[in-house]
Design a protein around this nucleic acid. Structure first.
Lengths: 195, 195
DNA sequence: ATATAATCGGAGTCGTGACTCCGATTAGAA
DNA sequence: TTCTAATCGGAGTCACGACTCCGATTATAT
């Protein structure tokens, strides 16, 4: 059918530059940052940005995908460690990210509602957003291991953990590190098995 | 000095209509809803909206003030009940509101950063936003009572509780009632004294 | 009932930001 | 080197939303 041509070298380079720039800009200014800012930061014209990503949403989604992949990789890496600490470390890491980078919490929230198999909320087009699925499954694996090791109470599931994670991330956005850590500690205590 | 005239009756009526409409519209569509939507819903012209509230932000703040007052009143009312349950009930109520009404969580977040005495984040003009202060003090009172009654661990302060509340509210926005309640339960367990 | 000062309404202004279009540029094949 | 198709850049278009302006309307004092 259609012949697939390999993309030109400069096109690939620009795509990468745009993605990096977008990540930086969104982190600094939030998702309402303008596409022009992204283009400027990437050192390309706006036209180029829209050539690579037909829509601002597409660009955002691409950035999100990268972030979630990073998170999932982190979870993967931690799966070698001891079960309980692994989960908590991942949790803390994710929240730390959210505290540092603006709009990172949005990534999580978006990923979550994308991953949710069934929700009463906003309907989702079928086939949209594979973004959250891998993160969800990574989280689920961590949780299960931690529960089997007796480090986390057994009466909760991945959705609750996800909600907690999102909440913590959002809460971390406007709070100092000390309060953030104490808040995390409270959540962790709540997650431990009841005695 | 300047003679103060009592406002006209219709002006007061319109102001109230606008406030009600704004609350409904923001609850339904979030804070990005347009001022025209508010005007239409209130059954007045845009000009009228801007006469009463010189800025969209001013309108938002006015709506927020009402909401926070309601919350504070709820806290007040609960202060008659037993200390521990009172705090938890308030917490659950606030989160419930956030889950139902869009952008209610923003109210809390805004109120919180307004109330925070010192933050490294965005600087605040002095004298701005008395909105959060009363809520903060109400919350603080509830917390202190609950701690004295031994229902809540004593090593946390109002900032942590506030962060938790905001997080829970934000997390509740896109989640079903069952997950929400289980998540709340986890937080409550974390808040109880360590055994 | 009349005067008058305040309020109302909504068409119009202004700024912003997503997205398009096309001539200039350039990577890569021959 | 030369040719060609793909990419680049950014000025221009378009939609939207906050906010202004002023003639029409109306509450209230006399």
């Amino acid at each position: 059918m259609a012949e697939e041509r390999p993309p030109r070298a400069d096109a690939l380079r620009n795509r990468a530059k745009i993605l990096d720039a977008a990540e930086a800009v969104f982190a600094a200014q939030g998702l309402s940052a303008s596409t022009e800012d992204v283009a400027r930061r990437a050192g390309v014209g706006i036209g180029t940005v829209f050539r690579h990503f037909p829509t601002k949403d597409a660009l955002i989604e691409a950035v999100f995908l990268g972030r979630v992949r990073t998170l999932a990789a982190k979870a993967e890496a931690l799966s070698e460690a001891e079960a309980g600490p692994a989960l908590f470390a991942f949790f803390a890491y994710a929240v730390e990210q959210a505290a540092t980078q603006n709009a990172y919490a949005d990534v999580l929230a978006e990923a979550a509602s994308a991953a949710a198999p069934a929700g009463e909320g906003s309907p989702r087009e079928p086939g949209a957003s594979p973004v959250g699925a891998e993160l969800a499954s990574a989280l689920e694996a961590l949780l299960e291991r931690a529960q089997r090791a007796g480090a986390v109470r057994s009466d909760i599931g991945a959705p609750e953990l996800m909600a907690l994670l999102i909440g913590a991330s959002r809460a971390a956005e406007r709070v100092g590190p000390d309060v953030r850590n104490r808040t995390l500690a409270i959540m962790f205590d709540g997650l431990r098995p009841l005695r």
